[in-house]
Structures are given as structure tokens and as C-alpha cells.
């Protein structure tokens, strides 16, 4: 015999609790976050290019200064080397100290450095 008040109703409906936002929301969210990230990346790339330009130009502006200083030192050591060569080769007639081995007036940095 059934109990008084009848049987309890059968639980036949699906019981799926809410588990966060749906697929399209997730997809949209991920797309939006990625889009913002790529936008920042693009901005950052442009900015990095400008930072690089700044760095390069700061060095370009200093080139003449360093080159001038290096030239003076190079010239001094060159003159010293020519003087040494003259002293060593003074007994050889017809020797031209500091003459290039090439038949050309183009400047070449010295191949031999005396330590």
C-alpha cells in the first residue's frame, strides 16, 4: 500500500548546476584579451623601434668626438713608429720610412703594431 500522502515525486529531471560562463562568452573573452594583448604588443614594438632610434642617434652624435680623440692618439703613435723606423734603417740608402707597400695614395691602417 502507498504511504499516506502518496509517494515522493521521482527525480527524473537533469540536475546540471551552473558552472560558469558559457562557451561563447569564454571564446569572446579570450579573443578580447588576446586582441588587447596584440594591440599592446604592436604599440610596444613601435615604441621599441623609437627607443632604438634614440639610442643609435645618441651614439652617432658622439662618433666625431671619439674619432677625433682616437685619431690624435693614432697619429702620435704613427709618428713614433716612423721615427723608430728611420732610426733602425738609417744605414740603408734610399729607404723611405713610413712608405706604403702599395702603389696607391689610399690610407691603410698599419699591419704591424710594435709592442
Amino acid at each position: 500500500m502507498p504511504p499516506t500522502g502518496g509517494f515522493e515525486s521521482l527525480k527524473y529531471k537533469r540536475n546540471l548546476p551552473y558552472k560558469g560562463p558559457g562557451a561563447y562568452v569564454l571564446l569572446g573573452g579570450v579573443t578580447a584579451i588576446c586582441a588587447y594583448g596584440f594591440y599592446r604588443l604592436g604599440k610596444g614594438n613601435l615604441e621599441r623601434r623609437e627607443l632604438q632610434r634614440e639610442k643609435v642617434w645618441s651614439r652617432i652624435h658622439l662618433v666625431p668626438l671619439f674619432l677625433a680623440e682616437g685619431d690624435r692618439d693614432m697619429y702620435r703613435r704613427q709618428q713614433a713608429a716612423i721615427a723608430r723606423e728611420k732610426e733602425i734603417m738609417k744605414d740603408v740608402p734610399g729607404w723611405e720610412a713610413g712608405k706604403s707597400v702599395y702603389n696607391s695614395s689610399k690610407y691603410r691602417s698599419p699591419e704591424i703594431v710594435i709592442l
Binding site: P64, L65, A68, R72, M74, Q78, S109
Partner: peptide, 14 residues
Amino acid sequence: RDPGHCLKEGRRVT
């Protein structure tokens, strides 16, 4: 490129 060629200009730069 000769170091002796531009000594005058180099002094001005410095």
C-alpha cells in the same frame, strides 16, 4: 681615413 688628415677639425670637435 688617414688619422693625420683631419687633426685640425678634430681639435675643433673636442
